[in-house]
């Protein structure tokens, strides 16, 4: 475990805590895409099935369990507890356009043609695009609460930090994971526009607002 990887995981953890904090303090899920959150549950459940047959480390198991339970809890908050604050009419991204290609890609690109490996590949590809409904919603509404943008920034930082982690692993451990690296670079690239506005506006104390 190198520092890039550790900081990446901590950033991921922080993003979920920020998300829960936003929901609890504003008592609202306004501005959040239910579709993106549902995709994350799909990502975590399909990838972390190995919890049941492959032990890596206590750290690994604890984190996986946390990501599965917290993402399911967020869905519960959005669909039950704070349902009136959820507005599906602006969450209009067509998720089937993401799921279809991800199924196809995972059947073509996988490390072994087994059910578990195909699911793992699928989860990697799906994670790379799972944020799109959320970014699409942000684009549509054109503005967001600061706390929501901090959540997205932490999530984007997590993906960005995995890239130097892979470079480190390539040089120091002679290890490459072409599927994870390719999908990870795509995923990070999706945040570029968001980060530009985040750095130039939110971190300067201004509201997150997109030009009309």
């Amino acid at each position: 475990m190198n520092l890039f990887r550790l900081f990446g995981d901590m950033s991921h953890l922080a993003s979920i805590l920020l998300l829960l904090y936003k929901i609890q303090t504003t008592r609202s899920v306004r501005g959040l895409s239910f579709k993106t959150q549902a995709l994350y549950v799909t990502v975590f459940v399909t990838r972390y099935l190995d919890l049941f047959y492959d032990y890596v480390s206590l750290y690994n198991s604890v984190m996986k369990t946390f990501f599965i339970t917290s993402s399911c809890y967020v869905l519960y908050l959005m669909k039950k507890k704070y349902r009136p604050t959820n507005d599906p009419s602006i969450d209009t991204f067509r998720v089937e356009y993401l799921l279809g290609p991800c199924v196809l890609l995972s059947l073509i690109f996988n490390y072994r043609f087994t059910f578990a490996e195909i699911l793992w590949s699928f989860s990697i590809f799906l994670e790379s695009v799972a944020i799109l409904p959320q970014l699409f919603m942000l684009q549509r509404t054109g503005e967001a609460e600061a706390i929501t943008t901090h959540y997205l920034a932490a999530l984007g930082a997590y993906r960005a930090l995995y890239i130097p982690n892979w470079i480190y692993r390539y040089w120091m451990e002679d290890q490459v994971d072409p599927i994870a690296v390719t999908a990870g670079i795509v995923q990070t690239a999706l945040y570029v526009d968001f980060f530009y506005v985040y750095f130039t506006k939110v971190l300067q104390g201004q509201r997150f607002e997109l030009p009309a």
């Binding site: 793992w120 290890q175 994870a180």
Partner: peptide
């Protein structure tokens, strides 16, 4: 190994 991927990552 590379054919297994980075399964220790999250």
């Amino acid at each position: 190994g590379a054919e297994e991927g980075h399964k220790d990552e999250l």
